[in-house]
Nucleic acid binder design. Structure first.
Lengths: 309, 309
DNA sequence: CCCAAGTGATGCAAAAATTGCATCACTTAT
DNA sequence: ATAAGTGATGCAATTTTTGCATCACTTGGG
């Protein structure tokens, strides 16, 4: 019931069965879902069976090792998630009538938004609306969109490229690629270091799937060079530590780094020359066609303001 | 449960409470709603009270002579009606997966569509899909739109003027004003009788609120004349009978009359000269933003084809 | 091949929720 | 003042749901 509690729906009896079905669909096992729901599996099983009887169609296919949604069940689950979300929005709307904003906002975001940007925005919002709760999920760009579609996230902050048809862009901000290096690095004195100069030094790069990596690949291809990182890692913190300890050049976007924090570690950040690598875009978006709760849409308003400043 | 039965939802337990609330809201009395629902009023009352307890806000204001929706209740009822409709659509969608189209289509329409046009279209559709049921409500144009908004109708066929923001026009057809008179009427020999000539004869007109009446008023004003009907009535059948019995001129639109039927009664239909009265439009529409059931949207497709032929 | 583990389904009795009947409290109209 | 109409509530009967134990089946490992 933790999920329903987050949405403010845990006491709504008429939603109970829908929530049960959603949980079983997510976990893929009646016994395991019963554990999570803290009810007896026999009771859960009977609720599912009774619903299927009423519905006239099997919602789940029974496998030897659990259950999975039938074709009809796939359609039903979309309906269920929309209804749970709509009811939560309604509750939030009604709370707003009495001047108290409540609700829950689930955000799928790129790693870069986690250290500084999002915490700041959430703290700012919650100073005025302490009853609003948040769930923040780190997601790469394709799973951020999946999270929107399956209603596990209300909004997404995703880096380049965003191209899927269900993603409605609400705002975007350009982010140049930044080189992070030690203050005593040979290129630290350049205000706009050139990419070809960076490539002459050992590199610590994010993985191929990262948006920053792709921007660097584009820049390298344009000068007929190949990226040969000494270090590849998903963790920006790790890469920054390598820059500090071994003098590598790491790369990130401005939103992801606290520049005063870099100075404390003897590091500097320098935007690459714009001619060398294209800027990337960070997109704020939601599921097309969905009406967000008041809490979520007001938070979106705040983010849009911030991003378009 | 007749309503839920029509929507194919009468066996869905999780919708029961929602349906109860909808019925009480519609009727405005817990005891009377209990009668319609064929349950004990005490049980119904407790369901309402229990829901309000869970919801944390009163859904109804209690009056000495019944109940009415609170402000929060107004928001809730929209959600309830949307959910009931969405679930019905889902059921219909799933039935379509198995190749059997079922569902229920509720139509709010102008009187003129009732004698011939709609019956024909429904019969045509039901020859292929006999499991689809229909509810046809005669509504003037403003109450047709209200029916869309409160989900008591899925689609509407309304005559001029249609101007409200919630009405999404799907198709329209121009309809000239037609004069109906006896074959031996002095103007019966004219192919396109002039309005000013008609005004020299006794008239049997629809009421002020009818679209045809308004088109005639426009035409009369343009020639500086005033309509002085000897007979005013809402019923087109009545007016046509007066034309037959007493030689009045009655007016209608082509969609509302079966011309071979007129000849059987010694009557003829003549389109007024277009310069005298503007054509009116008959609009087919739905509630903006709503996704119709497969049954309803396929019926709409059929009507659009018919109207645009 | 046998056994263990994991899974959904089901019988039976206990627990919980809902319902029907009777009544109460209040308002309105005559 | 009384009657009628309305929603709310006490209490017991009825219905539904749940927990426990067990069954039936599949899969994987020895």
């Amino acid at each position: 019931m933790q999920f329903l509690h987050h949405l403010g729906l845990d006491d709504m009896k008429h939603l109970r069965t829908l929530h049960f079905i959603d949980t079983v669909a997510r976990i893929g096992s009646i016994r395991k879902a019963a554990e999570e729901l803290a009810i007896n599996s026999s009771a859960l099983n009977r609720q599912i069976l009774a619903f299927e009887e009423e519905f006239g169609v099997a919602v789940f296919e029974r496998l030897s090792r659990g259950v999975r949604l039938s074709t009809a069940g796939e359609l039903l689950i979309q309906h269920i998630r929309a209804q749970l979300s709509d009811f939560s929005r309604l509750r939030s709307q009604i709370a707003d009538l009495s001047g108290v904003r409540r609700g829950h906002v689930a955000i799928a975001c790129t790693r870069a938004a986690l250290p500084l940007f999002l915490p700041e925005q959430i703290a700012l919002y919650r100073r005025e609306h302490p009853a609003v709760t948040f769930d923040v999920q780190q997601r790469d760009r394709s799973s951020a969109e999946a999270a929107l579609v399956d209603y596990s996230a209300d909004i997404a902050l995703a880096f380049e490229p965003v191209q899927h048809s269900a993603f409605q862009v609400l705002a975007s901000i350009r982010q140049p690629v930044i080189a992070i290096m030690r203050q005593d690095h040979p290129l630290a004195g350049e205000d706009w270091p050139r990419l070809r100069h960076c490539l002459e030094h050992p590199l610590a790069l994010p993985a191929q799937s990262a948006g920053v990596r792709q921007l660097l690949e584009i820049g390298a291809a344009a000068i007929g060079a190949t990226l040969s990182p000494t270090i590849e890692c998903e963790s920006a913190q790790f890469l920054i530590r390598c820059a500090q300890e071994e003098g590598f050049i790491a790369f990130d976007i401005p939103l992801g780094i606290a520049e005063d924090g870099l100075a404390d570690h003897g590091l500097v950040a320098r935007s690459l020359h714009r001619r060398d690598t294209p800027d990337g875009n960070l997109y704020l978006g939601q599921l097309k066609g969905r009406t967000l709760s008041v809490a979520a849409s007001k938070f979106v308003d705040q983010l849009v303001q911030m991003l378009e400043r």
